[in-house]
């Protein structure tokens, strides 16, 4: 079995902006080549604006490269339609964003159920059970029916993590998940990731500013100006 879960082959990403009548093309990422193995706990670091978020969205096939190929779980994604990409995302990926992004009208439980109900893979009752278990796992079992605005930032992020895990993703992708949290909540989130990686061999890729956080993962991809500056295994 192939141990590579994500591979970038000569990946470029250009940004085309329009200023008055001038079309400006800026290269955000250039010629990225790397592989992420199954079970790896990887952090992506680098200065602000270096292209980390862009890279993560490409890995999460939310965005398409301008040039090059992104391979996810052995499948080249370049030629896939938007619908096919959506199905793949639901099947293989879990996202955690910096700003929680829970759906405000829905309870914690319902938020976690959303990805499971998208494809009709789960019955409502099964999704409910699974969501409950996940929320207990992130120690939110006592806030099942709370709405996001009744939760603190740290609590919301834990619900978001439970949601990202709900479809048993092959890869968990997180964009500065502790960026908005205090040190205590950051530690809780980090410990959760660590535990997931060690106990269930969950592949995790985290974009982070936090040097301490990064050094406790198993691999660091350091990005500067849209290129990989160095890649170290810890």
């Amino acid at each position: 079995m192939n141990d590579t879960i994500i591979e970038f082959r000569n990946v470029y990403k250009d940004l085309i902006t329009q200023d008055n009548n001038e079309v400006i093309q800026t290269t955000i990422l250039s010629d990225l080549n790397f592989k992420i193995q199954r079970g790896e706990f990887t952090s992506i670091t680098g200065p602000s604006g270096s292209g980390k978020t862009t890279m993560l969205y490409l890995m999460g096939i939310l965005d398409k490269p301008t040039k090059g190929t992104v391979v996810l779980d052995g499948q080249e994604t370049t030629a896939l339609s938007e619908e096919q990409l959506a199905v793949l995302r639901n099947d293989k990926l879990g996202f955690i964003f910096q700003f929680h992004f829970l759906l405000p009208e829905f309870s914690s439980l319902e938020n976690v159920m959303m990805p499971m109900l998208a494809r009709g893979k789960y019955t409502y009752a099964a999704a409910r059970e699974a969501a409950k278990e996940l929320l207990e796992q992130v120690e939110m079992g006592n806030k099942l029916n709370s709405k996001p605005n009744q939760l603190s930032g740290g609590q919301q992020q834990r619900v978001a993590i439970a949601r990202a895990l709900s479809n048993k993703p092959k890869v968990l992708l997180a964009d500065e998940p502790t960026g908005n949290l205090d040190s205590k909540n950051s530690a809780i989130v980090f410990d959760l990731f660590k535990k997931l990686n060690e106990e269930t061999n969950q592949t995790i890729i985290v974009v982070t500013h936090d040097e301490g956080f990064a050094h406790r993962t198993r691999r660091i991809l350091h990005v500067i100006d849209g290129r990989i500056d160095y890649s170290t295994n810890i």
Binding site: G60, L62, E82, E83, A86, V87, L88, R89, N90, D91, L93, G94, F95, F97, F101, L103, P104, M114, P115, A118, R119, R163, A164, N167
Partner: peptide, 16 residues
């Protein structure tokens, strides 16, 4: 917009 983006991120299709 944010909710739509979120739903799409975890696999809701455009048609949905």
């Amino acid at each position: 917009y944010k909710d739509i983006a979120i739903l799409k991120s975890f696999g809701y299709k455009n048609s949905e």
